[in-house]
Design a protein around this nucleic acid. Structure first.
Lengths: 221, 221
DNA sequence: TCAACGTTGTCAGCCAATTGTCAGGTCTCA
DNA sequence: TGAGACCTGACAATTGGCTGACAACGTTGA
């Protein structure tokens, strides 16, 4: 999961980034509207946390430009302006949710989860495929009820595949989402990672579609 | 657009129903948890506005039962319990959004619009010819509902033919599309490919128009 | 400070699926 | 009936993907 955080107040930005990273997302941070717009326009994010009061370009303007250009990613708007007319504006400009400042970090994370979940077209609070269950709230993974311990990278890979449910995800997309910005990696690193994950989850858990990519195995429940 | 409103306080329920109806939605209202659950489980709604503090069955329980039963409709949760831990619970139980009371009606409408907009964005465009179905999102092909596993090249060929539907596609065009080159590639490679595809999809699936090209057979299902 | 450990990228070798080629077939139409 | 268009089975070269081994790196704890 790649997340872009656009927030100009250093203390808040730092806390948000730390919390999101601790949750296992790959996070990029920018501190003004123009950079935010550029990043969101050129890179592929699963979620954007966007402050409305950004320097150089207003957050609302950034959001509108993205939407006008057809960018679909879920956007969680942070705003200090708590009165409801602005909220309504934000939502109608294409925000998927907003959070008035000040907020509890836990609440931001819950909303982030909800948006990512919704974007994946899923209503359940846990991600699941067959006997594999991933609980994003507690960052726990079980296989048939038995806890499985995953490394950070393994966890991110599994979470991404589960979010995509039975879509086939090409290796290039996985590489981009796992390693954040401009990291050029050998696809073999990904293959090794898949192998390690399979060893922990069972070789049947992740399906290879030769020539296309990977997806979680569709199990017949 | 059908909307279900589950709210037990008569004054609020009345205002919400009126506002939604004024917007042009068809609205059903219930006033306790059991009725809410029953309605949501048996009828098809595009959106549910759900109060958490319902008599007879708690709103959260209603929501969880829906989700457990696989009901996917967007749910906007209303709650008087404004503290953030309950909000987190609500969101994690499968709510798509929540609105703390008291709220401005305009804000509720904006959120309703956002949820409906998002739900509408999920159409699954599939390519089809007779019993052959190609789902581009899942990169899956089925024949009479039975999954068929295709190689990358076979998949591309089929996708192209399905896109052209009832048009007869000359071999030169197929070669160009499959191999990029406008060249002297042996048309026999294409013939071999067609043969392999036919073996998987049924020999009737692809029609040969001698001297012109190929097209998907128009089947009468 | 150093050793033990876990994580992750790299490398090399292996296996199996994919796909082009070839050598015959079969079909169709003049 | 024969020429060309098309089909198909066999085969081999190529490619994509898997995995065990190892090394680099950071973390932890004594």
């Amino acid at each position: 999961m790649r997340v872009l955080v656009a927030e100009d107040e250093p203390r808040i930005a730092e806390r948000v980034v730390a919390a999101l990273e601790a949750t296992g997302y790959a996070v990029d941070a920018v501190h003004d509207g123009e950079s935010a717009w550029f990043q969101g326009d050129t890179e592929d994010y699963d979620l954007v946390v966007l402050d409305l009061g950004l320097p150089r370009m207003d957050g609302l303007a950034v959001l509108k430009r993205w939407r006008a250009a057809g960018r679909q990613m879920p956007v969680l708007v942070l705003t200090a302006r708590g009165s409801w007319p602005e909220r309504v504006d934000g939502i109608d400009a294409g925000a998927d949710d907003y959070l008035p400042k000040p907020f509890q970090m836990e609440e931001l994370l819950a909303r982030a989860r909800a948006l990512l979940r919704r974007a994946a077209g899923q209503g359940a609070p846990v991600l699941q495929a067959g006997e594999i269950v991933l609980d994003p709230r507690h960052m726990r993974v079980t296989r048939g009820g038995v806890p499985v311990s995953l490394s950070p990278l393994e966890y991110r890979l599994l979470a991404y595949l589960l979010h995509q449910k039975d879509r086939v995800v090409p290796p290039s997309e996985l590489l981009e989402h796992l390693y954040g910005l401009d990291d050029e990696r050998d696809t073999n690193a990904l293959e090794a990672l898949i192998t390690r994950l399979r060893r922990k989850l069972g070789s049947q858990s992740i399906e290879t579609r030769r020539g296309f990519g990977y997806c979680m195995a569709r199990q017949i429940p």
